[in-house]
């Protein structure tokens, strides 16, 4: 247990050196099966945390709990020195979640999708959106309906949000699944860059990640 005794910092001035996100004694039970218990870890700015574990070990559930999408848990989640229950609004403003369901509407074009999904977090203009789509390799597909795109391309539409998001913490659930080799390398680079620039990433993947400042947490070992 890496319990850290905390001397409650002032609300608006979190300790500059303190952890970005701290999880204390988290446990979750689902359908009378314990997914994980007594889970404690810290995510600092500038780090990438890979969450590993076999299928069904609770990786997705853990990520959804961290984001506040799932509240069936015991324990504490501390964001910049305060419980996420109290800081919900500033927390979600600084969070980007990428889930199994990628958040791409198939009727809309990539541009229209991104205009909404990225525009909820920051003000965007079309040039920014086009640049982001080009950066993830979707140049020429900006105006095609997403149902004409492959699964990997749809995933790229959602991953283009990473390039636009102002969020410090990225929570990514299996972002590599349908990507091709080049896109995987590019995404790894994006994650490493984000960490280098002071952001933090929590990512689940079965993929072997190689980047500096990577730590790994394996679920389902107990």
């Amino acid at each position: 247990m890496n319990q850290i005794t905390e001397s409650s910092p002032a609300p608006d001035a979190p300790l500059p050196g303190g952890p970005l996100l701290e999880v204390r004694d988290l446990s979750c039970e689902r359908d009378e099966r314990v997914l994980f218990a007594g889970l404690s870890f810290v995510v600092d700015c500038g780090t990438v945390l890979q969450i590993a574990g076999s299928n069904g070990s609770g990786k997705t559930t853990l990520l959804r709990i961290l984001c506040g999408l799932n509240d069936g848990y015991d324990g504490e989640i501390i964001w910049r020195g305060e419980s996420t229950d109290d800081t919900a609004e500033s927390f979600v403003g600084d969070l980007l979640y990428f889930g199994h369901r990628v958040g791409v509407n198939k009727i809309l074009t990539p541009l229209e999708n991104l205009r909404w999904s990225a525009g909820m977090q920051r003000t965007v203009n079309d040039q920014l959106l086009l640049d982001a789509l080009a950066a993830v390799g979707l140049r020429g597909f900006e105006e095609s309906p997403c149902y004409t795109l492959s699964a990997g391309q749809q995933q790229r539409v959602s991953l283009a949000r990473l390039r636009l998001s102002p969020a410090t913490l990225w929570v990514l659930d299996e972002p590599f699944t349908t990507l091709d080799v080049d896109a995987v390398a590019q995404l790894e680079q994006t994650l490493a860059d984000h960490a280098r620039q002071g952001g933090a990433v929590i990512v689940t993947t079965h993929h072997k990640l190689t980047m500096p400042s990577l730590s790994r947490l394996t679920l389902g070992m107990s």
């Binding site: 229209e112 920051r122 003000t123």
Partner: peptide
């Protein structure tokens, strides 16, 4: 990281409204 501007709730409202209308018309 926080150099960009957070949109106002009003513009988020309009974005969502426009998106849903667009989906409906498509």
């Amino acid at each position: 990281l926080s150099a960009s501007v957070k949109p106002s709730t009003r513009s988020a409202f309009m974005l969502t409204l426009k998106r849903d209308l667009l989906i409906a018309f498509k």
